[in-house]
């Protein structure tokens, strides 16, 4: 399973966000707009971080927000949010966050392929910086090697 399509609706660029919760909700809203999740999924992503801490900040400047597969996930989906100003998640090494990816996994047994593709995209050290600087959804898709 390669990266899921990233339609224009799944991309929100240079968004203002007051804190990490708002940033994660933006990623959730984009997943909902793209038809990958219901509105409840954004709350579930926030809850994961409240419960387990900011471990979703997986590399410098980048958060991979996600929750468990469940009824609020309608399809595999990936959303991309870039922030007007970076926000702090409270991570010991990787703050502040400039790019939030929202990940919805519909079929957990098949999602390793998606993750492998994501790891390939971020194998280049400046991927997060290039996403943060992306001017439109086409540029985002270009950086990640995704289709619309």
């Amino acid at each position: 399973m390669p990266l899921p399509p990233i339609p224009d609706a799944a991309v929100r660029l240079q968004c203002p966000a007051a804190d990490w919760r708002e940033a994660v909700r933006l990623a959730g809203g984009a997943l909902e707009d793209a038809g990958a999740t219901t509105a409840a999924y954004a709350d579930e992503m926030v809850r994961m971080i409240e419960e387990h801490g900011p471990y979703v900040v997986v590399s410098p400047g980048l958060a991979l927000a996600h929750a468990r597969p469940g009824p609020s996930v309608l399809a595999d989906g990936l959303s991309v949010v870039t922030l007007e100003r970076p926000v702090v998640f409270g991570h010991p090494h990787n703050d502040p966050v400039r790019v939030v990816l929202g990940l919805a996994v519909h079929s957990p047994e098949r999602h390793l392929g998606l993750i492998a593709d994501l790891a390939n995209a971020f194998d280049v050290a400046d991927t997060t910086a290039r996403l943060a600087a992306a001017a439109d959804a086409d540029a985002v898709r270009g950086v990640l090697g995704a289709v619309a």
Binding site: V105, I115, A116
Partner: peptide
């Protein structure tokens, strides 16, 4: 390991195998 058992722990798995 991660909180959900998907996503972040899967990144670790993929990269650990590499």
């Amino acid at each position: 390991i991660c909180g959900a058992g998907i996503g972040t722990s899967a990144i670790l798995k993929v990269n650990a195998e590499r």
